[in-house]
Nucleic acid binder design. Structure first.
Length: 407
RNA sequence: GCGUAGGUGGCAGAGCGGUCAAUUGCAAGAGACUGUAAAUCUCUCGACCUUUGGUCUACGGGGGUUCGAAUCCCUCCCUACGCACCA
């Protein structure tokens, strides 16, 4: 089509390529020079990023590789987002407990949401639009012979080099055979897609390198692997959804803002580098401001606003900032509060439980005895667990839960 | 298949006949304080109720012994390790 010619207009600007290969990057395989040369050759390359659609939402950790893809897209290269729907339906080996297997329908629902969330970063339209593919397309068609052929390309020893497996061996934890298949399956994706390279979080390095091994064997091709740094919290832990301080890409602006604010000060610079598009010059400037003793909280507010703006737009970013300042710096109330309609004379405890604002009646009673439940309008604390709702009232539960009960 | 060690709350991990709804750490929630939902300190953390108390459900599943079991016995399931087997 007519867009094709234009898409071949590749940007080979050295500075851009240099930033692409260093900013937020942990490792480049086979090596940086090789990749630089490739990117400067003027040939359109194809890169992909694989995601397991196991959760309904992506989190901020996914955004680092996605931003890398975006850079490539901007340079004129072809990019693919691969959804590991096949792998997701079988389960993932990163947990000892067997993960719930997802149905086809759940996976598809998740994927729709993913595409929307990813669309905030990379473009699925225009001349050089990103492609969205599912690995079930080829993996589900393989028979046992194909699988054995694939399995014969790697050794158990190679598998055991993977940290997670080595750790499990050491801790006498089980490793199931099918778990060995994951790196193979993911690696095989590269072979089928025939890509030039893959981008992923550093935690995926092993699987991405499995793809390198396989591509060499199947298609005699030198696959490029770019592993991005992982965003870590103040203790150096990976900020995943399991750690609790994660930013979910489709969460509302206030929660997203708050989640960023709860990050340790140490994460400010890495976060700017890794999950925003703020220029390196500006980041350098921010670093200086921090060193000069500027309150990190205020800089973190800038960070939070920047991140929220990526996913919700600039206006939402400003609003979230305002709410945050109101609620937490000044002890006030956010602009918009969840409203629940109910009948006069209903019990507060029942409404809160039904709407999952408290987890049980016992939980509510505990909160009341801790003095955590109060009426916003009068600033009175609720002292009885059997509080009846007589008129429209706004309640505050703890620090961050607000509810307006409309009679 | 044989042997050994295990299976406890969101996770890790104590307890090994009554005082166990279960020590402790992490995670979580709340209060105080503050530079933020950071840090720190204090409290809470199975559920339900007519709440200085009571009831119910829980220590892999099922059954049993006992006035009484997470704790003892039987059985089944699951895991690790060792041995055996290994085209």
């Amino acid at each position: 089509m007519f867009g094709k010619i234009k898409s071949l207009h590749l940007d080979t600007n050295s500075e851009k390529i240099e930033e692409f290969l260093t900013r937020g990057v942990e490792n480049v395989y086979p090596n940086k020079d090789f990749v630089t040369q490739k990117l400067k050759s003027g040939d359109q390359l194809t890169f992909y990023y694989g995601i397991d659609p196991t959760a309904p939402s992506l989190h901020i950790g996914h955004s680092a590789p996605l931003l890398k893809l975006k850079s490539l897209q901007d340079l004129g290269h072809k990019i693919i987002v691969l959804i590991g729907d096949f792998t997701a339906m079988i389960g993932d080996p990163d947990k000892v407990s067997v993960r719930k297997q997802l149905t086809r329908a759940e996976v598809l629902t998740n994927c729709r949401k993913y595409k929307e969330q990813i669309g905030r970063i990379i473009s699925f339209s225009g001349n050089n639009k990103a492609e969205f593919v599912f690995n079930s397309k080829w993996l589900s068609k393989m028979n046992f012979g194909d699988v054995l052929d694939l399995a014969s390309k790697m050794t158990v020893d190679q598998m055991l080099k993977r940290d997670m497996f080595a750790k499990r061996v050491e801790e006498n934890k089980p490793i199931y055979i099918h778990e060995f298949m994951y790196p193979l399956m993911q690696g095989y994706d590269s072979v089928v897609l025939g890509v030039d390279g893959e981008i992923g979080g550093n935690d995926q390095t092993f699987n991405m390198l499995a793809g390198r091994t396989l591509m060499k064997q199947f298609s005699n091709k030198e696959k490029i692997v770019i592993a991005t740094k992982l965003l870590t919290d103040s203790f150096g832990n990976k900020m995943g959804k399991t750690e609790g301080n994660a930013v979910i890409l489709d969460q509302n602006e206030s929660d997203m803002f708050g989640a960023v604010m709860s990050w340790g000060d140490i994460s400010i610079i890495p976060a700017f580098t890794l999950v925003t598009c703020v220029s390196l010059d500006k980041i350098e400037n921010i670093k200086k401001r921090l060193e000069a003793g500027e309150n990190p909280r205020d800089i973190k507010i800038e960070l939070a606003r920047t991140i929220v703006s990526i996913y919700h737009g600039e206006k939402a970013g400003e609003k979230a900032e305002k709410d945050f300042t109101n609620v937490f710096k000044k002890g006030g109330v956010p602009e918009s509060i969840q409203e629940i309609k109910m009948k006069t004379g209903g019990l507060l405890i029942d409404v809160l439980l039904e709407n999952n604002i408290v987890s049980s009646k016992t939980d509510f009673r505990r909160l009341v005895s801790d003095g955590a439940v109060s009426i916003v309008e009068t600033d009175e604390k609720i002292t009885t667990p059997n509080f009846k709702i007589e008129k429209t009232t706004t309640f505050r539960v703890g620090k961050k839960r607000f509810v307006k009960l409309v009679v």
